[in-house]
Structure formats: C-alpha cells, structure tokens
Amino acid sequence: MDLRGVIWRKSSRSSGGGNGDCVEVCFTRDAVAVRDSKDPEGEVLAFSSASWRTFIAGSVGGVFRR
C-alpha cells in the first residue's frame, strides 16, 4: 500500500498529559490505515472501509467495554 503523501490524523483527545499511547489513522481510496503515533516509520495495519465501519460501530456501541 502506497501511503506517501497521505494525511495522518490523531484524536484531539490524545494530546496533553497522556501516556503517549496513541494511534493515527489515514483514509485512502481503498482502505483505512492505522499506525502507532510514537513509531511513524513502523508497521501499519490496513482495513477495508467496511471492516473499519464495523469496528467503529462496535466501539460506539460498547462491544469492546470490559
């Protein structure tokens, strides 16, 4: 996946006083990519748009709460 020139986004809630455990996402025509903000040259996970929508819906719906 060619990610040159993409715009990575990080949650506004991730800055200031946190422990640095943040991820960044970018949206491409074919996928959503996720990386560790502390290691921007490291591994990138890529998800289809449909998978990403399912993940977000589950997150908002409380599926991942303990």
Rank of each mutant, 00 (worst) to 15 (best):
M1C: 04
D2S: 10
D2H: 11
D2M: 12
L3H: 02
R4Q: 15
G5L: 11
G5R: 15
W8C: 03
W8I: 09
R9P: 03
R9D: 05
K10H: 00
S11G: 08
S12N: 04
S14P: 09
S15C: 14
S15E: 01
G16E: 07
G16I: 02
G17K: 01
G18S: 15
G20D: 07
D21A: 10
C22W: 06
C22A: 07
C22I: 07
V23D: 01
V23A: 08
V23Y: 05
E24V: 06
E24A: 12
V25F: 03
V25Q: 02
V25E: 01
F27L: 13
T28Q: 12
R29E: 10
D30I: 04
V32E: 01
V34F: 08
D36Q: 02
S37T: 05
K38L: 14
K38V: 13
D39E: 09
P40H: 01
P40A: 06
P40T: 09
P40E: 04
E41C: 12
G42M: 05
G42Y: 07
G42R: 03
E43T: 10
V44G: 01
V44N: 01
V44R: 09
L45M: 05
A46M: 05
F47G: 00
F47T: 00
S48V: 03
S49H: 11
S49D: 03
S51F: 06
S51L: 13
W52N: 03
R53S: 07
R53M: 03
R53G: 09
R53A: 10
T54G: 10
T54P: 00
T54V: 05
I56Y: 00
I56N: 01
A57T: 12
A57K: 06
S59I: 01
S59P: 00
V60K: 15
G61D: 08
G62Y: 13
V63G: 06
V63L: 13
V63N: 03
R65N: 07
R65I: 11
R65D: 14
R66H: 15
